[in-house]
Amino acid sequence: MGVAIRVADEADRELVVRLLDEAFQDDPVSNWVFPDPAQRRAKHPGLMAAFTDVVLAEGRVDLAEDGSACALWLSVPAAGNHDGAGGNQEDGDGADEDGPAQLREAVDPDNERVELIGRLTAAIHPEGQAHAYLWMIGVTPERQGEGLGRALIESVLDRCDREGLAAYLEASNARSRALYERLGFALSGRPLDLPDGPRMWPMWREPRPGGPARA
């Protein structure tokens, strides 16, 4: 489908945060981080705001022109080691290894799962090869199933293919995993089973000379 896409900036921050909050309120991982519905309604927007701020500062937020969907991307260099949710690129001395702890302190100090999700995803993040990291992609609930997320992803995968760049993500549910597989992603290592929680699937995609799969 044809979707007009632009790069978001600071003026779009509140829109992106609201969109991500709405899109992930019922996500299995968000439900694990904030198992109490009232707590999730209160604290989840702050977590999405923290993620948005990181990517606006260090990466790229692609936004559908009508505000219905967004994708948060980070560029990970060949020697990089990304700290996952709430972390930053390390410079080799471990200076940013406390990113998940800082995120917990800022968002919900009494909730150890805010920190734990960052540490667990960092532990499975592949190292060595430069890649584009799809941190999050969100579609407003009333527009889900229309192909908006796929359009956002394909626009970046097209560029990855032209530049010979790999891509990586963690799928948080079986439906999204199936979409990513159709786009050429494959399971990378073992799935991550969150303690007493859902499964996440680390997925890797090598660049394709012919472009993304269109099945």
Rank of each mutant, 00 (worst) to 15 (best):
D193A: 15
G118A: 03
G147N: 02
R182E: 11
A123H: 12
V107D: 03
R199I: 02
S176K: 12
R182F: 07
E127Q: 15
L179R: 06
G118R: 03
I117W: 06
D193Q: 15
V139A: 02
A167Y: 10
Q144L: 02
G128S: 01
L192Q: 10
R190T: 13
G164A: 04
Y168I: 08
R190I: 06
L179V: 14
E112L: 12
G138L: 00
G128T: 00
A171R: 09
Y168E: 06
L169T: 14
L152F: 01
E127F: 11
P195T: 04
N111P: 10
G149T: 00
R162C: 11
G197Y: 03
E170M: 14
L120I: 08
G197A: 03
A132F: 14
W204T: 02
E146P: 13
A186K: 14
E163W: 08
A106E: 06
R113P: 04
E146F: 10
L152G: 01
A122F: 06
G118K: 03
P141R: 00
I137M: 13
M136P: 11
A151N: 00
A186L: 10
E154L: 09
G128I: 00
P126T: 03
E163P: 14
Q144F: 02
F185Y: 12
A178Q: 13
G184L: 02
L183W: 05
L148R: 00
H125R: 06
A186W: 07
Q129N: 13
V139W: 00
I137P: 04
E127M: 15
R199N: 03
R199S: 07
G164W: 04
I137N: 09
